[in-house]
Each structure stands twice: as structure tokens, then as C-alpha cells.
Nucleic acid binder design. Structure first.
Lengths: 330, 330
DNA sequence: ATAAATAATGAAAATTTTTTCAATATTCTG
DNA sequence: CAGAATATTGAAAAAATTTTCATTATTTAT
């Protein structure tokens, strides 16, 4: 089972390498007759072009590096899906590198990606990855940053406007005279939490008030649940905002345990809708975050940069759609 | 910003290409002094080897193609994590291709993977992908098949033994004289459902009974929920087994709506534990499926094949761990 | 029918690396 | 110190493509 190269195809069809190459790429016209001969040879021999050799000859790999944290995988999963689907449309391949917090050396990954000569890099950069972006910037490679707004000559960014989401949420409650809004904060200190913070504070400022409803918890859902169970023995809130879906479930369970009826005693809102927040009972409100789109749009922007199309918007802001708990009882 | 190649490094450090290559790869000893000179040049110029050229010269890319369906992304997500983590340890990169059912043309993906000259392919092959495996087989490329047991010269496989899990589950209930066990079946007709079927049937056969407790539902959770809501008006079961976590939640919600107490009136068991099945109330039992391990082991097997280590077991069977609902109230 | 224009093809260089084989330099042995 | 043995290095080929420039073949216009 020897490997068949362009040479064999050339010999089989009695033409030169150049002509075979032309048939493969459709770059120049070749006579209908020779084209057919070459194609027959390709099929007969089962020839598949070698992308590595092509990459070398063209200094182009039609490959995009994706660097993404492995936490919150169901979210990143949808991002990856969107990204891959669009990549496929534009004939790009995806080089995946996941980052396991505290384990992965990001410099190594960047080295890897640069070595692989990907045409561009898409990186999911919540707070922790800020300096990776800077590191990559030095290579002057086209980049799309997800989850953060940074842009420059070679960099586009796509993010979800959690600030606006929380602002509007708080604003509407404040308009109704409700100001007892709790926001769960874990200690990730990531972009999302910070945007939420800003949104809440802006809303309260608009109403000439100061926001101080943060409830600090750990990253671990189980201990968050335990904490809240005792917390609810002494504290109540009209509105409770959680970031991730698993946090929202922890709140829900802790609240139910203390006979806090949702939504009557307390509104529970999750910033990231998932199939779980939408199927749990009692039903809770949530923001539908366009995670698939986040990936899809990022990749689309990347293809634009790579194909030298004009990128009219270098920073793309996506809205989270508020989806109040369904009131219909089916 | 011109690109720096091995030539520039050679010139800068006054040695030949060959010597630079030797320093980079540590393949042969070079004099300590020259080695230092070369390394200085590499740092000074910021040289990064070109993996594409290396790939061409070596006919080896240290790259593994991963083909995985995009459905059930939180599960695949963990698989991907395990896989990437192990890949990193052995210095392999991952070429990701997701398959969107009904959208993606698998032949195209296989073409892509072959073109990219990956060193091996790992494919998640529940039923639908059987023929892709056959297609790939023709290329005689090292393969690991996840979720299915196929093995041959060049193929290893790793799967979770749902058959055994369901067998033991049913057997233990039958031993207690409980035989009213319902199993939810959607129409995916995938490997997992079939294994579950086999397990249940074997257990019942062992007790000289015939199993016929399947409840057929659609793939869509929302309609499953609606269906079950009316189903429970007229039917009751002692034990109810769901495959995916979202299905289990649908059962839970439908049952609660009909005042079926879990676990007192009905035991609910989910075959795939997730952070949701483990945090929902009332608590439900579930099998912990080692999805991370599934990916990690697959990649480890792949590295063994690629490094020509002996692979003692070509088929690796993983057990799902039964985790009955926690009885401790924290 | 011939010159001019155009279409189709091929030869060879270029892409960046590894590796083999040969050459040179160094160290050792007696 | 000569010759042998060994260590270190370099020249060139090889990997599979694309592309430029030149050449040959064909068509068009006169």
C-alpha cells in the first residue's frame, strides 16, 4: 500500500506535474480532454493531495487554531460547534487546544500553534488569558478574541453584552420599585462577572442608588449549595441572579429547601440558559446566550480576515436574549 | 516582519542547516559550544521550527484527527477534554471535526482528515458512523473507535459497557422481586440504546422472563415531557430508566406533575450522570460514565499505536459506576 | 497560406525541513 | 608523533506540492 503522489498521477495520465496541479486546483484552464484524463488517473489511483506539501508550497494551511478553556464545557461545546460548522463552509480546518486551568502552560500552546503555521488563531479569552493575547499579538497573526473586546489591525473580537443584559434587568426592577437584587459572584474574576457588575452598578447609579447586592461564593457548586442553604435561613431577596446554569440550580435547590417559592417569593434568573435551566421545575428565567453564534461569528470574521475581505465591524457585540420563565402551563 | 527559517539561524550562528536541525531535535550530539551558539541565534531571531516542513520531511505530523458528533455536547465535551489533555502529554495536536447530523457529509470530513496527513484518527462511532469507520479502514491508518467495539490490526476501540450496567441493575431489582422496569428508548437506534436493550433482556432471561418494558419516545425532550405527562396519568412503574440526562429531567418533571414521588413511588435512574442529574431535586440515581477517561484512554491507545508500543488490549471496556441517589441529607 | 494572437503545457525553481554519507577535526594509543 | 579511532560538521538529496517563465500547439485574421 504505497502512497500515491502527484508524480504517479502525472505519469499515469501522461502530463506534467504542473498540469495535474492545475486540474486539482482549477487555477488555470486545461483542455477538457486532458482534464478528463487526469481526473480518471486521480480516481484510478485514489490520489488525495497532500495538504502538508501544499501548505509548504503556499505558506498557507487553511487551518485555524482554536484555544479554549475546558471549564464550562457545555458552553464551550456549543461555541466549538458553531465554529466548526462555519469553518467547514469556508474550507478551513480547526486545530483544537483546550486549556485546563492550572495545568496547561499557555506559552507552550501558543508555541504549538505558531509552529503549526495556522493561518489564524481564535482564542476564548476571559480574564485569565489576557496575556496570551498579548503574546500572540507579537506574531502578527490574524486573531479573533472571543468574550472580550480588544481590536486592532489584526484582531477582531466577539463578545456577549452581559453588561447591557444586567443593566436592563436591574433597571426594569428598579422601575417597579424593587431594589433587593442579589447577584452571585464566584471568584473567577472573569470578564463576564465584571460586565455583570458594571451593568448592575450603572442601573443603580441611574436610579441614584448604590449597588451592593453581591453574594460571594466559591467556584464549587456543591459548597455554594451548602452555603446558600444556611444563608437562606437568615436572608431573603426579591430577585436573585446567577451566572452559570449549575449555580442557578444550586440556588434553586437551596431555596426550595428553605421553602422559598420561586418565582413568588423570589425571582431566580440565570445569565446562561441551558437545556437544564429550561427544563427544571419550578421554572426559572434566564438569558439565552448565543453561544453557537459566538463561535460561528468568530469563525466567519476569521475567514473574512484571511480572505482579505473588508471587515466593517472589528468588534462584534452579541445580545443575550431575556427569556422570562414560561407562564403557559403547556 | 519577515519569517525566519532554519537558514537564517544557520547563517547567524555560522553552522550548516544540518547542525541547526540537530540542535533543534537533539537527535545527535553537537559540541557544547556550537550548541550554545545555535541556541543563542534561535533566541535572538525568535526562530520557531515550521511543523509543516517537518511534516513533509518526516512524513509524520504528530497530529491526530478527531471526528465526533456535535450532539450531546456536554458529554463529547468531556471526551474532548480527556483526549486533549493526554494528547498534550505525548506532544500530539488534535485536528477537530464535528459532525452535525444530517448536515455534515462524512465522506468530506474523511477526505479532509486524509488530506491533512494526520498520523491517526479517533472517531466517535455510535451506530450512524459505522460506514465511516469502514471507509477510513481502507486508508490503513491507525484508528481508535470510541463507543463501539471493533478491532483489527490497525484499530483499537474503547467503549462503556452499558450492557453490563443495565444487566446488573435489572438483575438486582429482579432479585428483589421487582420486575416493573421501564426503559425509555428514543429512536436514535444507537450503540448505547442497543447495549441497554441487550442488558435488560439478558437479565430477564436469566430470571426466565421476557423483557418488554420499552417506552418509545422521540428524540426531542420537550415532546418527551409532554408525552410522559399524559402517559403517567394512566401508567405507573416501579423503576424508570432514562438514557441521557435531559431525558431523565423530562421524566422527573412529568412524574412530579402527576404526583409520583421519587424515589418512593418510582425509582428514576439516569444512565449518564451529569452535574444536573446530581444537583436536581428530588435526587435521582445515575450511572457515572467515565467520559473524560473515554477520551483520555482513546488518545493513550493512539499514542501507543503511533509509537509502536505493544498494545496488549485492543478493546478497552470501561464500566459505568452506579451511583444511587445520595441518602445522606448532605 | 502566413503572421499574429492565444491557448495549453512543461521544466525547473521554490517552499522548509531532515537525514545520509562523506569530510574534516579532534582525541587517543602505542 | 604517526596512525587509528572517534567526534563533529557540512553538502546534497529528499519529501510533495505550486508557480513562473518559456515553449509548443492551436486558432484567428488578413
Amino acid at each position: 500500500m504505497k502512497k500515491v503522489t502527484i508524480y504517479e498521477v502525472a505519469k499515469e495520465s501522461n502530463v506534467s506535474l504542473a498540469t495535474v496541479s492545475r486540474v486539482i486546483n482549477g487555477s488555470t484552464v486545461v483542455k477538457e480532454d486532458t482534464k478528463r484524463r487526469v481526473e480518471e488517473a486521480i480516481n484510478k489511483l485514489g490520489y488525495r493531495p497532500n495538504a502538508i506539501a501544499q501548505g509548504l508550497a503556499l505558506s498557507r494551511t487553511t487551518t485555524v487554531g482554536l484555544i479554549i478553556p475546558s471549564t464550562s464545557i457545555s458552553f464551550s461545546g456549543r461555541v466549538i460547534n458553531g465554529l466548526c460548522d462555519v469553518a467547514k463552509i469556508y474550507d478551513y480546518s480547526v486545530y483544537l487546544h483546550t486549556i485546563t486551568e492550572g495545568v496547561t502552560d499557555i506559552k507552550e500552546i501558543i508555541d504549538e500553534v505558531i509552529k503549526a503555521r495556522v493561518d489564524g488563531v481564535i482564542i476564548y479569552a476571559d480574564k485569565d488569558l489576557d496575556d496570551s493575547v498579548k503574546l500572540l499579538e507579537e506574531y502578527n497573526i490574524p486573531m479573533v478574541v472571543m468574550c472580550n473586546h480588544i481590536s486592532s489591525e489584526n484582531i477582531c473580537s466577539v463578545y456577549v453584552d452581559y453588561r447591557k443584559a444586567v443593566f436592563e434587568l436591574c433597571d426594569s426592577y428598579l422601575n417597579k420599585g424593587i431594589e433587593d437584587i442579589a447577584i452571585l459572584q464566584d471568584h473567577r474574576n472573569d470578564v463576564v462577572s465584571n460586565l455583570m457588575k458594571t451593568g448592575a452598578e450603572e442601573a443603580f447609579r441611574k436610579h441614584k442608588k448604590e449597588y451592593k447586592g453581591y453574594i460571594n461564593v466559591s467556584k464549587d457548586n456543591r459548597s455554594t449549595y451548602k452555603f446558600l442553604k444556611s444563608y437562606f435561613k437568615t436572608h431573603r431577596h426579591k430577585v436573585f441572579v446567577a451566572n452559570r446554569d449549575s449555580q442557578a440550580l444550586a440556588v434553586l435547590n437551596a431555596a426550595s429547601g428553605q421553602n422559598i417559592a420561586i418565582p413568588d417569593d423570589m425571582e431566580l434568573i440565570c445569565m446562561n440558559e441551558s437545556k437544564y435551566t429550561s427544563s427544571v421545575r419550578p421554572e426559572i428565567s434566564s438569558f439565552v446566550v448565543p453561544s453557537y453564534d459566538l463561535g460561528a461569528i468568530s469563525m466567519r470574521l476569521m475567514t473574512k480576515m484571511l480572505k482579505d475581505e473588508v471587515v466593517e465591524e472589528k468588534e462584534k457585540c452579541l445580545n443575550a436574549l431575556y427569556s422570562p420563565k414560561s407562564t403557559t402551563k403547556d
